[in-house]
Design a protein around this nucleic acid. Sequence first.
DNA 1: GTTGGATTTGACCAACTGGTCAAACTCACG
DNA 2: CGTGAGTTTGACCAGTTGGTCAAATCCAAC
Lengths: 204, 204
Amino acid sequence: MPKDRPPTRIQKKNRAAILEAALEVFSAHGFRGATVDQIANQAGLSKPNLLYYFPSKDAKFTALMSELLDTWLDPMREIDAEGDPLEEILAYVQRKLQMSRDFPRESRLFANEIVQGAPRMLDALSTDLRVLLEEKEAVLLAWMAAGKINQTHPKHLMFSIWALTQHYADFDVQVRMLMEGEDPFDAAPEFLETLYRRMLTPKS
Amino acid sequence: MPKDRPPTRIQKKNRAAILEAALEVFSAHGFRGATVDQIANQAGLSKPNLLYYFPSKDAKFTALMSELLDTWLDPMREIDAEGDPLEEILAYVQRKLQMSRDFPRESRLFANEIVQGAPRMLDALSTDLRVLLEEKEAVLLAWMAAGKINQTHPKHLMFSIWALTQHYADFDVQVRMLMEGEDPFDAAPEFLETLYRRMLTPKS
DNA sequence: GTTGGATTTGACCAACTGGTCAAACTCACG
DNA sequence: CGTGAGTTTGACCAGTTGGTCAAATCCAAC
């Protein structure tokens, strides 16, 4: 437990290594299923050394979550109320899909936690996510009122985007098993674009 | 370990109680996160007594999975190649949605397992589910070829139905937190019907 | 190089885990 | 009843888990 000073070179390196290892292990086994030994092993450090940088298993998990939540919500923040409605939504879907392809461990980390009732995350979600969703819900409602996109339930629309895009990361093993070698991310972008285009394009 | 006889009254009752308790606990914490003590407690039996009916934690889990998998896949089996294509698909979506509402623990049990790589389930999935999906994929392709529904990627279409409907069970806490008391299952049926109707209705 | 804080670890601990076992108890049936 | 199979459990065990701690080592600045 070093003093309250700017982090040293070693501190930066080891903290990063620990969080990377924690992501690997927590995302694969969930909080309870993961062991500190596994994380230590993955990070190439001894167990007491991990406890030197983060005082408990909980602290590691919490640090990881708060570091990732912001990044995780970025694609939604980028939805621009001034942009073209349909294109903004389609771009959001593609950003989320890319997150699932490029950061599947992060997706599974959140999925694991939420499926099990989010006991360590509900607070963060009920502030950050809730506020963000309400903001974008208002944007969607405005677009619908202006006839730019079809009328629909804005919250369920957002849920559907999360469900469809995260499914490719969270259920990766199942999807890949059923696609027999073919990469799901080859066809998914087009599939989702078509789906939301048909769903949202206003009737002429 | 009783002999190989027809199960007694007590055996039936206790096996059922154990599997019910196992469903409750495994679905809430995943396999590794669940403890035999928790299950025993939930079932109102002693730990050694559980081990008398199922020789290990693994055996309980496996028995539970194989009991539930068939039921879980039933909605897909009911898709009728002879029925009206669009209505068959819409009805399938509604059946899956009802499963999420009425059997959320079952959904979360599978979700937990698959998110973590399905180490104890991949075999069952890669036979039962794979065969069933390929059968229904052929049906969908026939419907598309006949112009009854829009052309699209049949596997991704099925994935989308699973993702959208199971999301309401698997991410229940998040969905309910964001809906602030309103029941997600009030609006979900209509939302999903509209979505798939717009997606699949052939252009005139 | 010396020195003082930063870093690392081997040894250890109490709590918990899945599982065993012999002994006790219960129950259906003759 | 009684009797034998079916059922239940308290006590126990070895392995694992998250976490502690004093001692050893490293490293940057003087």
